[in-house]
C-alpha cells in the first residue's frame, strides 16, 4: 500500500500552479473535449500535475517522485470549473495517482496469482534485500519507494514490476537487483522482458502466425 492521503501533513504545499510548459499541455488536453465538457480532462490534468511534481522532485535534495497534493487537485478543479470533490473522487479511485510523496522511483511489484506462481515472492525479497526497506516504505535517500500492487496485466511475462512508466518483465531475483542497481546509478535499464523475449511471444520463437512474425521482423 502506498502512503494514504493526509490532509494535515506538513508536506502538503499551500499552493500549486502549472508551469507554463505544463499549462500548455493541460490546454491541449482540455481542447480534446467539447466546450462545456472540459471536466473530462480531469485525468490527463491530474497526470500532468503528478509529472510536474516529479520534474521538480528530481532536482530536489532529497529527491522525490511525482505525487498530487491537495493544492494541485483544487487547482485542477478551478481550471476545469468543477466541484473539488469530484476531482478528489477521481484522484482517489485510480491507483496510478499518488496522493502522498513517493521516492523518485516507484517500484510496484505485482504479487497477483500468475506473478506469484512464477516467483514474485523472490522478486519482493530481492527488492527488500537490495533496498533495505519493507513494502510501502521509502529509502532514506528518497530514491525508491517499494509497493505491492495487484495485477498489472502483463501476466504472460510474469513475474513483473512497474517502475514509474516502465514495465520490467520475465524477472529473476538477480535481474531485479541489477535493475535497481542501474536505477540507483541514475541510468535507465532496458525496459520490457529481461530474458530477451519479444513482446509476449514464446521464448523459443513464434509457435503460430510464423509468417507474420517474420514479416514483422520479430522472429
Amino acid at each position: 500500500m502506498k502512503k494514504p492521503f493526509d490532509l494535515n501533513a506538513d508536506y502538503q504545499p499551500a499552493h500549486f500552479e502549472f508551469t507554463p510548459a505544463f499549462m500548455d499541455k493541460a490546454r491541449a488536453a482540455i481542447s480534446l473535449y467539447p466546450r462545456g465538457r472540459q471536466k473530462s480532462a480531469v485525468m490527463p490534468l491530474l497526470d500532468l500535475a503528478q509529472r510536474q511534481i516529479a520534474q521538480e522532485g528530481a532536482k530536489a535534495t532529497p529527491p522525490y517522485g511525482g505525487w498530487i497534493s491537495r493544492a494541485a487537485m483544487d487547482h485542477i478543479a478551478e481550471i476545469l470549473d468543477m466541484p473539488k470533490v469530484k476531482v478528489y473522487e477521481v484522484a482517489t479511485f485510480y491507483s496510478m495517482y499518488n496522493l502522498a510523496p513517493v521516492g523518485t522511483y516507484l517500484v510496484q511489484v505485482c504479487t497477483t496469482t500468475p506473478c506469484w506462481l512464477c516467483g514474485s515472492a523472490e522478486i519482493v525479497k530481492a527488492c527488500e534485500d537490495r533496498l533495505e526497506i519493507g513494502m510501502g516504505e521509502t529509502t532514506a535517500d528518497g530514491k525508491f519507494t517499494l509497493v505491492e500492487v495487484e495485477c498489472l496485466g502483463a501476466c504472460v511475462n510474469a513475474p513483473m514490476v512497474q517502475v514509474n512508466d516502465d514495465y520490467y518483465e520475465d524477472l529473476s531475483a538477480g535481474a531485479m537487483t541489477e535493475i535497481i542497481d542501474t536505477l540507483a546509478e541514475g541510468m535507465k535499464p532496458q525496459a520490457g522482458s529481461q530474458k530477451g523475449r519479444k513482446a509476449s511471444m514464446a521464448l523459443s520463437g513464434p509457435t503460430s502466425l510464423e509468417k507474420q512474425a517474420k514479416k514483422a521482423g520479430v522472429a
Binding site: 466541484p83 470533490v85 469530484k86 478528489y88 473522487e89 482517489t92 479511485f93
Partner: peptide
C-alpha cells in the same frame, strides 16, 4: 453544494 463524494474504490 457538492461537498460529499465517494472516495477510493
Amino acid at each position: 453544494t457538492p461537498v460529499l463524494g465517494q472516495f477510493h474504490r
